[in-house]
């Protein structure tokens, strides 16, 4: 519980720079959040509007996929190209997703009852 409190002295220029950057980041987060809500609305609307199931199922899955990418890149900061070892992190995320996808594919296709 003995955290040293960290004090950082910032110059006026730095302060303004961070303020501007934070404002830009917040703007982008809110925008992304709005897009996500919009996509969710579209998904619900397509289900409620009684379109053919053969259209609704892949369409909703596609929207879900877009939201996963948004989640990873906008809210979990994978878009930050300067982050430490971001290349390795992206490789592991997408590599894991690809491998997990084959498992889902297998469970949906070749497992019989």
């Amino acid at each position: 519980m003995a955290h040293d409190t960290h004090f950082e002295a910032r110059s006026q220029v730095q302060q303004e720079y961070y303020r501007k950057e934070n404002a830009a980041k917040m703007r982008s987060q809110v925008t992304q959040f709005a897009i996500m809500i919009l996509l969710t609305l579209v998904a619900f609307a397509s289900a409620v509007a009684d379109f053919a199931p053969n259209f609704v199922k892949p369409f909703v899955l596609l929207l879900a996929g877009v939201q996963v990418v948004q989640q990873l890149y906008a809210f979990m900061h994978m878009e930050d190209k300067k982050a430490y070892h971001i290349g390795v992190i992206s490789f592991f995320m997408w590599g894991g997703a690809l491998i997990a996808f084959t498992f889902f594919l297998c469970f949906l296709t070749i497992i019989w009852w």
Binding site: F103, C106, F107, I111, W112, W113
Partner: peptide
């Protein structure tokens, strides 16, 4: 249930 699911999970 399905006994084959174990075999897949185990060999994955």
């Amino acid at each position: 249930g399905n006994t084959i699911i174990w075999e897949h999970l185990f060999w994955i």
